[in-house]
Amino acid sequence: MVNFNSIKELIELAKERNTSIGKITMEYEQEHSFDSEEHMLKSMQNNWRVMQESIERGINNKDKSLSGLTGGDAIKIYNHRDESYTGKTVMTAAASAVGVSEVNAVMGRIVACPTAGSCGIVPAAIRTAAEKNHNSEEEILDALFTAAGIGLVIEANASIAGAYGGCQAECGTAAGMAAAAMVQLGGGTPDQVGHAVALAIKNLLGLACDPVAGLVEVPCVKRNGFVAVHSMVAADMALAGVESVIPVDEVIDAMDRIGRSLPRTVKETAEGGLALTATGKAISKRVFG
């Protein structure tokens, strides 16, 4: 029976068996859900297909959301990629993540990963890594299972819900998952996956969830773009050999404690932060009367 209660245990299991974190996660899921390996791979393949469709639709999206607040920015970012300061790869990743998030806002089909509010980050990061490394679909699915394993531990030991832990719980978890997937796709070790997760989450600790009018739009849509890029930097640092001084599981503990101590006004209540700015309040009044 495969069981893990921490990222450390997940890493140790992968090292002991000379396999990936993704494979350990798959084994865990198989034992707990009684699902067959074939069916699990098919489900994940389906998720990846929908993720790619949402990227394609997103970077071409001109639709506005129900509130009219978002829509049409991904295509602008994408078209600017050749003249950008950050370069084509980074801009494409940002456009992809913003695009998926725009698709979410216009009531299109996405894969919550781990949540709908953070749905652009992991797909954008994986697509970026897979294009650079020419990864096979098998490797991409393994990276998705790796990301899922990280998310499972965070969900168990902290939270993936903005209402409980603030945005660090949603976009922070997505960043950790995305960084883990990118390290996996770049041929990194299980230890490097752990450092990437730690680096990604550490630098988003304390992030408020203060969406304007309570909608998954401002600042969520553009934040997906920023966090996708953030996770790429974490993955690159880990692959370069940079280590997190604070071990990943302690970072997750810190995230949990910070989440508990954050005031409820910045935990998805739309009663604080950006939601309470003059413009935020005016938008809320316009949308809901």
């Binding site: 998720n47 996405i110 919550a112 899922a148």
Partner: peptide, 22 residues
């Protein structure tokens, strides 16, 4: 612990897992 497909997934119509998918 929840399952892998609660973390990577579900496939859903946006914008909100609680207010739309749920």
């Amino acid at each position: 612990m929840r399952g892998v497909f609660d973390i990577v997934g579900p496939i859903m119509i946006g914008p909100s897992s609680s207010h739309t998918a749920g």
